[in-house]
Simulated scan of single mutants.
Amino acid sequence: MMACRRVAGGFCSRLSRLSSFPISAARRASAVAHRPEAASRFLSPSRVLSRPLPLAPCRRVSFNVQDGEDFTERVINSDVPVLVDFHAQWCGPCKILGPRLEKAVAKQQGRVVMAKVDIDEHTDLAIEYGVSAVPTVIAMRAGKVLDQFVGIKDEDQLDSFVGKLVGL
């Protein structure tokens, strides 16, 4: 076993030394001329970064609340309904619910957004909205709480919950 590690370690160190040698411009041009498919490996960073970015609008379905002012601006004053996901980093059920909730919100194609509030960072918001357990999800429209639930829901229940908010 030790011999295998020693051999593998030696191979890895030799490989890293070989890959760190700079490639001359002549060798690069020769490789590109003889093998056009290798051209992409030798593109300079400036050429790669100068490509135009797509102009299609990219709308995120969720965002992290930064502070109380951000919450007021993006949740209370929002033109569209907002699902507020009160969660914590240490919460296992929160880690399961988060992606499910994002998927349900994404299905609505911009008719609803999701705000994520970490209760450890924003205890004032958690207290203000009566959050006593996580995950807690609150549905809001025009600054008013319309509905809420605590705990995990399956995808069908989440689709129904989000659909109800959009249909109101």
Results as ranks from 00 to 15, higher is better:
156 D>C: 00
21 F>V: 14
34 H>M: 11
6 R>A: 15
115 A>N: 04
148 Q>P: 02
101 L>T: 03
164 K>S: 13
4 C>I: 12
118 D>R: 00
151 G>K: 02
159 D>E: 10
28 R>S: 15
103 K>N: 09
166 V>L: 05
164 K>C: 06
146 L>A: 08
139 A>F: 06
44 S>M: 09
158 L>T: 02
62 S>R: 02
79 D>Q: 08
124 D>Y: 01
136 T>G: 07
14 R>E: 15
60 R>T: 14
86 F>L: 02
158 L>A: 03
11 F>T: 11
156 D>S: 08
148 Q>N: 13
6 R>E: 15
87 H>D: 09
13 S>R: 13
84 V>I: 03
159 D>V: 01
153 K>T: 06
95 K>H: 10
21 F>C: 14
81 P>C: 05
84 V>E: 01
143 G>I: 04
81 P>Q: 05
29 A>K: 11
56 A>Q: 08
88 A>Y: 01
33 A>N: 11
138 I>R: 01
124 D>V: 04
83 L>W: 06
80 V>T: 11
161 F>L: 01
71 F>H: 01
6 R>G: 03
12 C>T: 11
133 A>M: 08
162 V>T: 05
15 L>T: 14
30 S>T: 15
44 S>V: 07
165 L>M: 10
79 D>L: 03
23 I>R: 12
7 V>P: 00
155 E>L: 06
26 A>I: 08
163 G>K: 01
144 K>I: 12
45 P>W: 09
7 V>C: 08
24 S>M: 06
148 Q>C: 07
